[in-house]
């Protein structure tokens, strides 16, 4: 028990001081937290519930737009603000900025959770590959529609104001926003998987028909799980909107083949259906991505595609799955304890 306290204590201490001892990597670390958030939340439905969504990026993009629109709407007229041909310069006061950010990010989370309920009600009738393709379709359609919607800036996207104080302070600010959300998502997932609800999700993953035959409220559980996961992704998207300052629909917000697929790869790399898998996977993936981005000029995408294929094909259980196999005792897996008790 005490060992565990030391472990978590050191971890939290590191999270708190990381941006100060690694000052050059503040933005990198914030992006890492973003990866961790989307990976953990993807695993809530993908790993724990067995519904492999390729469309969770929809909530990231929608979160960005919702947060930005709320923040703008507090101070100005949205249609005017996003008009590409207007010369007006819009200036946010500090209060407008922080109030807009707070309400925008929260609103993004809530709106995305509602979206998940509505979309899920339709798509959860689909199973296996149809669900994956259907959600991918939702994400692509979302991006296409938003990029043709002039009121929110169309293909140009939206520009938000810069963090009002100094630049470095801004980076720290966003680091802690992401880190806080990430820690919250992790703690929430850890708690969720220990409840009856978590067990029901596993039951749906392993044999949904049996779960139905046992009278579990499968549809309700699936909707709630996806909606909780969408809540965190929406919040992450909302924070990203303010961190990136400018974003546009297809490449940044609804980036189906970038972040949309990265989150899945993170989880597979770390180990599907485990608590720590998404976290470990996100860290390893992020490191890999940064290295390839810097050293494989031009070929980084090919390297990433190769990583996806290799992970999926050859490294199926992921890092945590491999650890469980090699060191089951670390994970408190009891196999024959009862029998040993009986014989002694």
């Amino acid at each position: 028990m005490s060992k565990r306290f030391v472990f978590y204590g050191v971890l939290i201490a590191f999270i708190l001081i990381a941006p100060f001892i690694l000052p050059d990597f503040k933005t990198q670390l914030a992006t890492l937290w973003l990866m961790i958030i989307v990976a953990i939340t993807w695993d809530m439905t993908g790993g724990q519930m067995g519904y492999n969504s390729l469309g969770n990026i929809f909530f990231y993009g929608t979160g960005m737009y919702v947060a930005a629109i709320i923040a703008i709407a507090i101070a100005f007229d949205v249609g005017e603000y996003t008009n590409a041909f207007s010369d007006t310069i819009y200036k946010f006061t500090d209060t407008q900025y922080f109030l807009g950010a707070a309400l925008g990010v929260l609103g993004a989370g809530v709106f995305c959770a509602l979206c998940a309920l509505i979309i899920g009600y339709i798509t959860f009738g689909l199973r296996g590959p149809y669900f994956a393709i259907g959600t991918l379709g939702v994400a692509i359609a979302g991006g296409e529609l938003v990029s043709n919607w002039d009121w929110v800036g169309g293909g140009q996207g939206i520009s938000l104001p810069v963090y009002p104080y100094d630049l470095e302070g801004g980076k720290v600010f966003f680091y802690f926003l992401f880190a806080g959300t990430g820690v919250a998502a992790f703690v929430f997932a850890k708690w969720l998987y220990s409840t009856r609800f978590g067990a029901a999700l596993n039951a749906i993953r392993d044999d949904e028909e049996k779960a139905e035959a046992m009278g579990l409220h499968t549809m309700r559980y699936k909707l709630i799980a996806w909606s909780l996961s969408a809540f965190f992704v929406g919040i992450a998207g909302g924070i990203s909107a303010f961190q990136l300052i400018h974003f546009e629909p297809l490449e940044t917000a609804y980036q189906t083949i970038n972040l949309g697929i990265f989150m899945v790869v993170c989880v597979l790399l770390g180990g599907k259906g485990t608590l720590w898998g998404p976290v470990v996977g996100a860290i390893v993936f992020h490191l890999f991505k940064e290295v390839t981005w810097n050293y494989f000029l031009g070929w980084q995408w090919v390297a990433l595609g190769t990583l996806i294929v290799v992970t999926v094909v050859y490294f199926r259980d992921g890092i945590m799955g491999w650890l469980v196999r090699v060191r089951p005792e670390w994970f408190g897996i009891r196999v024959e304890s009862r029998e040993r008790e009986a014989t002694s």
Binding site: R196, F197, A203, D207
Partner: peptide, 30 residues
């Protein structure tokens, strides 16, 4: 049809009568 990848106790716990549970109760631990 049982949950082959889980142990027997977990199989049993999943089979708790969810129809008698309120939504809030399903968020409790066993």
């Amino acid at each position: 049809r049982i949950y082959g990848k889980m142990n027997c106790v977990k199989n049993m716990l999943i089979s708790l009568p969810h129809r008698k549970m309120s939504l809030l109760e399903s968020f409790k631990q066993n």
